[in-house]
Amino acid sequence: MTTNTVHGRSQNRVLEPATEHPFDHEPPDRHRRQKLLPWLDDAAQERIYGSTVLIARVGGLGGPLTQSLAMAGVGRIIFYHDGNLLDEDLHRMVLMSPDGVGRPRAPQAIESLQRRGRPETRVEGFDARIRPQDAARWMEVADLAIGAAPTYEERLTLGDAARRAGKPFVDAAMYDDETHLLCVHPSEGACLRCLIPESPKWRDDFPVVAAVSATVGNMAAYQCLRILAGAPVPWGRLIHFDLESMDFRKTKLPQNRECPTCIAGTEPI
């Protein structure tokens, strides 16, 4: 009896002769199947590997969204999500686990995203709400900003910073079985502040089921991947999808002539 190490595991057994040449196989390509999509060739996949996204919140909507981005190979994910996990979060927050109730959500989300991404994936999370100065700094390195927060304020903070930096912005939101999705061009057409010049009063305990928040989260993730890959997206169109009636509507947003974000435009670099 001899002791051999096979694929890193110690096993006490007689070593059988190999039946295959060990160098005949290509290294596994985790993303082979998604690269069968016509718009996602090797070059586009490399762009996704090299990309950085900044997102406000990784809860019921942002959790499935960032999970899909990590699985698709996005290179660096930076998120802000404050607060401790509640038991009542678990019905929708796919990045959290029951063991983490009472503890900060951000470290749990980092661990989950790191596990779903490639070994090279960088995940940086902050147990805080994003502020305008944070967003402005991160948009110097991020390729895309994403709004997935349950407040208009955080969404507008990212939307403003993205337009200022000349970077794209994706906003995804839900209420009950109603969902919104908006892809904002880096420099042209309506921005999120054109849609929301004044924030309406919001309901903190909005009705939510994971089937809805994850649906719009993944619709947004798909548009994010297309943007990062360089594929066309419906810029400036507000997508409104009602999951009760299954009505899907796409409306071109008018640019608000008085929008301070559009008037300020892109900061010269």
Partner: peptide, 10 residues
């Protein structure tokens, strides 16, 4: 005529 209020749930 549709009246649409932006939402913010996430």
């Amino acid at each position: 005529i549709d009246l649409l209020l932006p939402i913010a749930g996430g």
